[in-house]
């Protein structure tokens, strides 16, 4: 993802309003900035935050133009919700990295049976795609860490296990700077649980099933 003299790392973060997508994008961007990289982000505020689909883009590199990542060029798709992962695929380059939570947030109409949400079909579909997929149940790991709201830190932990233009653990440092002290312990725990999952500590089968 980084090479050839020019630096470029485009990360798309998808999820559902209220899951902490904006905060995650800020943490990544801030960390990149601290390491001397140019960075641009785009965030979703307003109406879509009320439980709708949300997307943040983080662009790290040189000669950045827009804040939006062109289709088919993102290096990493970080997805907080299973179905939203599929919605984000159009941004990803061939062979790109997907870090996705297998946890589902079921839209109201799907809960009523008026639209379909088949997680098995989505899982099968994702596994067939030509991408490098790491699937974790971020919700479950966040609960293990102490609070379901730390799912975004679990996913940042998984991201930290990837090859990045800065040390992965710096993501945690930035997060702790932005979070109130009483949340530090849970978030740090969630981050390391995610990192272990990203490094394959639970075995690939566990991480992708």
């Amino acid at each position: 993802m980084l090479g050839g003299g020019t630096i470029k790392l485009d990360i798309v973060i998808n999820g559902v309003g209220g899951q902490g997508v904006v905060l995650a994008s800020r943490i990544i961007a801030q960390t990149a900035m601290k390491n001397g990289w140019q960075v641009r982000t785009s965030e979703t505020h307003g109406m879509a935050q009320r439980g709708g689909s949300v997307t943040s883009h983080v662009r790290i590199g040189e000669n950045l133009f827009g804040a939006l990542i062109p289709n088919g060029t993102a290096d990493i798709l970080l997805s907080f919700e299973l179905a939203e992962t599929v919605r984000g695929l159009e941004k990803l380059k061939a062979g790109g990295k997907i870090i996705a939570s297998s946890a589902r947030v079921v839209p109201v109409l799907a809960a009523m049976g008026k639209t379909r949400y088949s997680d098995q079909e989505i899982l099968q579909y994702l596994k067939k795609q030509p991408y490098d997929l790491t699937l974790v149940d971020a919700h479950d790991l966040a609960l293990k860490a102490g609070h379901h709201k730390a799912a975004n830190m679990v996913l940042l932990g998984v991201l930290a296990a990837q090859k990045l233009p800065f040390a992965g653990d710096e993501l945690l440092n930035t997060a702790l700077e932005l979070l109130p002290p009483k949340l530090h312990e849970v978030n740090a725990k969630a981050f390391y649980l995610g990192k272990q999952a990203g490094e394959g500590y639970y075995g690939n089968a566990a991480a992708t099933s």
Partner: peptide, 15 residues
């Protein structure tokens, strides 16, 4: 970009 068929993905309007 190999745009996936996202028709099967449930819409998620704000609620």
């Amino acid at each position: 970009c190999k745009a996936p068929n996202v028709n099967e993905i449930p819409l998620r309007p704000p609620a």
